[in-house]
């Protein structure tokens, strides 16, 4: 049993035992490769009010030393949220998810969800990142291997 699987088992049993913070719910965790979670944003932010967004976590064998690949996915009544750091193909530009910069093995699925939830909650701009169309059209890399420049401390 690999390190990642043991750690994810522990996280999963903790989620089942203690539950997840408000607005976050586990949709699918049938294996230790890919989990789906739904998040909702509370408060009066009109951009996301009443909506649910689906996050897809893909874990590698080196989790939690390396970060999981976290993207938004579309689905039944699930859209990609409008945000200046979220591309329309679901890729999230967040330093926390970068292997070399923000990630720390102390993070877990729950803490990543909470970070993304607050990143949405504090946003006021109804826009996509600069160069979204070009990026979405040509990007073939997995989000983990894209060199984002994390320069915006406001959101």
């Amino acid at each position: 049993m690999s390190f990642a699987v043991r750690r994810l088992q522990k996280e999963l049993s903790k989620i089942h035992k203690d539950g997840l913070p408000q607005g976050i719910s586990l949709v699918k965790a049938d294996d230790f490769d890919e989990w789906l979670l739904d998040i909702r944003v509370f408060g009066e932010n009109p951009l996301y009010k009443g909506q649910r967004f689906r996050l897809k976590f893909k874990f590698g064998n080196n989790y939690p030393i390396e970060p999981p690949e976290v993207t938004f996915t579309t689905g039944l009544e699930r859209q990609i949220p409008m945000h200046p750091h979220i591309y329309s193909n679901g890729i999230i530009c967040l330093d926390l998810l970068s292997p070399s910069q923000g990630w720390s093995p102390v993070q877990n699925v729950e803490s990543v969800c909470v970070s993304i939830q607050s990143m949405l909650a504090s946003n006021r701009k109804n826009e996509r990142p600069e160069g979204n169309d070009e990026f979405v059209a040509r990007n073939t890399k997995s989000p983990k291997h894209i060199n984002f420049v994390y320069d915006d401390p406001t959101v």
Partner: peptide, 17 residues
């Protein structure tokens, strides 16, 4: 073992960096 693995990736404390 855990801290040794983590340091291979990034030479900072996983908690306070």
């Amino acid at each position: 073992d855990c801290i040794a693995e983590a340091l291979k990736n990034s030479e900072t404390c996983p908690i306070d960096r």
